[in-house]
Amino acid sequence: MDGASVDGGFIELERVEKVFDVRRRTGFLKSERRRVRAVDSISFTVARGEMVGYIGPNGAGKSTTIKMLTGILTPSGGRLRVAGIDPSRERTRLARRIGVVFGQRTTLWWDLPLIDSYRLMHRMYRIPDLRYRQNLDRCVELLELRGLLDVPVRQLSLGQRMRGDIAAALLHDPEVLYLDEPTIGLDVISKAKVRDFLRELNAERGTTVLLTTHDLQDIEQLCSRVMVIDHGRLMYDGPLAGLHEVGDSERTLVVDLERELPPIEVPPARVVRVEGSRQWLAFPASESAAPLVARVAAEYPLVDLSVREPDIEAVIAKMYAGQAGQAERAVS
């Protein structure tokens, strides 16, 4: 599942762990200590130029993984390499080769005009002048930052600021870009702009992109590969389509009949909802809908019908439930 390639991935994690001691206040002065495995023996490899979605519920360990990959946090165990560099040991050396965008906090200087942050990045990252100008021009054009460069960051809208942040992360031509919730809180148009830009960046420059997100459309539109993490463990690693199979998910057939009828019987589909003459039938996503439709049409007075694809969010939720069920069974 982790598919560690022989030639070595660009990002490599081998049984990486992160354990926190969490203190919880239980009284006025008393507190309780608890060990939390934020990341529990995760292994995966990302090849150069891949665009990977890293998803999971809140507190699953996504941000902790990103923080270890960028060298902010030191892993408690396991082996981790990015471009052959151990991030926690050579944080500043790695910093020149990666770009990071934290969706919820800006890396820009809040009180100063956007351009000031870029000028500082130019010097701090020792970006050659020509390169800097080319990259800035490109970002300004594609991310539509013209007219915003002289505006103090705090006056930018969330979407503008996010685009500003993405530009800041890319001025030094990073080989890998980490995006932590890049579209959180953005309106539809801003989301589309950001996604278009990332797609183009990946296609033209071959920049490796790893993004965490709550927005499954980000994944659908950008990533050929998705990793699902929960409770610090990697639950799934593969193409987006495969999630449906793993998640044991169901599609829904919505049929409109001529009149109100008792729930119709067309196994393996089962009726999950009836509303007047309309009925909803759930059937495994892995099965073809055609024979089912044929049978309904043959046996019942059909007026209209449609097939609804499963909602990924529901798929993931179901997958978690399934895993938890398995774990319980294993214990009992």
Binding site: I72, T92, A95, R96, Q104, R105, T106, T107, M124, Y125
Partner: peptide
């Protein structure tokens, strides 16, 4: 507020 992290990903002490 977590903004220390943004300093940790820059190539400077």
């Amino acid at each position: 507020d977590g903004t220390l992290d943004t300093l940790l990903v820059r190539p400077a002490p």
